[in-house]
Amino acid sequence: MFEVGRLAVKIAGRDAGKVCVIVDVLEGNRVLVDGETRRKKVNPKHLEPLGQLVKLSKGASHDDVKKALKPLDIETQDTKPKSAAERPKKQKVNKKELAKDDPKAKKESKKEAKKETKKEEKASKESKSKK
């Protein structure tokens, strides 16, 4: 009943109610299906065969299926993989520029400046004592 080129309706899952063509009969009670549904392996229990046959070679490509189904007014679903969007690159953070904008960062920079001045004072004192 499920031969290559047989039109069928999918009756289970999210593609239920959509018309498809059997493209290939696979091992282990599976059938390759294409058409209104996405091209996928299917258990024939999830298909209801229709009385129509379409001329298709075994393992026909998606484009062939598209051509074969055009006269029957069955729109095929193109499932080409989406081109991956470009990842946003990590930008190097310039701390000095951040300090200009951020009040918090400003405080930190002030603290650092204080530390530096203290160090300088210490150093100067030490140098004086040495003298």
């Binding site: 069928a8 289970a12 209801e48 065969p49 129509q52």
Partner: peptide, 17 residues
Amino acid sequence: CMRSHFKSEARKVSVNV
């Protein structure tokens, strides 16, 4: 019930064809 619905629908179509 969803499956039986689509089954019966498909059989109606195939009879018409």
